[in-house]
Design a protein around this nucleic acid. Structure first.
Lengths: 254, 254
DNA sequence: TGAAACACGTGATCC
DNA sequence: TGGATCACGTGTTTC
């Protein structure tokens, strides 16, 4: 056990840095009535914010350090109150978000929130399968649909699915335009923050076009995924796509 | 201010039942060093679970009531510790469910959870539109598709969408069978805990069949909605449909 | 240094 | 009554 006098409120006590002994001592030390060599404990008189000795008569003359300690205790307890209020406000929000009733204790409420989130995630995952918009994995698909007659040209269905990103659509347009293909049809669907772009593409160069379209779309997906990841690491909350459209044909990319 | 000696730990103090004054007195009373006529305050010696006087010498002889108080304080603080552990365990679960990082303070974590739930709900709502399975409102739709040639028979598309309930499918089967119709095709889709059943129905009685099919399906939906509501009021967590199938033709109802 | 975050034990309240 | 829940002020640690 060693002496530590580095606590900020000027309250001296015995401790050894060990959590266990600290806990054992905690209560007694608060009152300064422990048999170990405790020097003193100070408490705040809530009524006037003045300092009193926990044991013994109320001090007649008070030093500067005691006044400072009184102020520290006051601001400390006020900060703690604000913290509690902040936390409880969020808990109230959650109370409004889970179905169920009011008058639910904190632990049960939090358990309910946990299961609610899991349920919602499962539902979203299910919906994303039905809508063919995977939520967890990015995706690039390119497939030949049919060989057009004679001239060796090809009809392709190509799609990409990833998180939304401001430059996503213009990037997709750029890479598609750089290829020797003609876009027959475009569909853009979104689900939550995910975007899926599907093309019907015709090309006269049947040989390598599948690979080059796949490479082009993959480069876009990889760029977006890198941007999103770095934004998350920098604690920048990604802006969510709020306006969602499903199955809308559009010429945004043309 | 009036005397209250009805607190369970045998600790006497002054109070007036008012929250404000109670708070002001709270701290000083803990130590029994307030200038108001406080009788005594007892604290638990964490090391051995023994009772000591907050002010004054450690008592040599201890009464039965003091022993009982010591035990009460101990079990009280232990119960409180368990409560904290329960709450913190749920908070840890939530930490694992929000994306973001570890080392997030409680208030921020809870704020993140709130926004996460809102986002998930918006996504589910969006998906339910795309999949034509409304999440918030029950629905019965019946429409004539075409008049079959000559004999006055009719082809209908009928659908119902509501929460899942164990007897739902058999109830639907029952009411459909009670009608003078032939079921041509059935589709069952689910999203989360919602179920949508769609029928293609042919009938030789073209006049009233739309209304009677609608009435039949509505009676099922109303029964289910009543069951679900009463289950929620009784705090019975409705069993969620875990196995989800989308757009599956089936003969479950035939 | 001082502000912020957490765990703790306690008084109060409810059923 | 005893047990459970909550708000509170405080000691401690971290940055």
């Amino acid at each position: 056990m060693m002496q530590c006098d580095n606590n900020q409120y000027g309250i001296s006590f015995e401790c050894d840095g060990g959590q266990f002994v600290n806990q054992l001592l905690h209560n007694a030390e608060n009152r300064g009535c422990f048999s170990l060599p405790v020097k003193q404990s100070l408490v705040l008189d809530g009524g006037k914010g003045e300092l009193v000795r926990a044991c013994g008569r109320v001090g007649r003359k008070r030093g500067v350090s005691e006044t400072k300690t009184a102020e520290a205790l006051r601001s400390h307890s006020e900060a703690e109150r604000r913290r509690r209020e902040r936390i409880n406000a969020h808990l109230e929000s959650l109370r409004g978000l889970v179905p169920s009733n009011e008058k639910m204790d904190k632990a049960t409420l939090l358990a309910e929130v946990v299961s609610q989130i899991k349920q919602l995630r499962a539902t979203v995952s299910q919906a994303s399968e039905g809508l063919q918009i995977p939520m967890d994995t990015d995706e690039v698909k390119v497939e030949a649909i049919e060989n057009l007659s004679g001239d060796g040209s090809l009809l392709l269905r190509a799609s990409l699915c990833c998180e939304h990103w401001p430059d996503l659509l213009s990037d997709v347009r750029k890479v598609i335009r750089s290829l020797p293909v003609r876009v027959v049809k475009t569909e853009i669907s979104t689900l939550g923050s995910r975007v899926k772009v599907t093309f019907l593409i015709s090309s006269v160069e049947g040989d390598s076009v599948v690979g080059s379209v796949r490479a082009a779309l993959s480069s876009v997906v990889e760029k977006v995924s890198a941007m999103v990841e770095s934004a998350e690491q920098l604690f920048i909350p990604r802006k969510r796509q709020r306006v969602l459209c499903l199955d809308s044909s559009s010429c945004l990319l043309q």
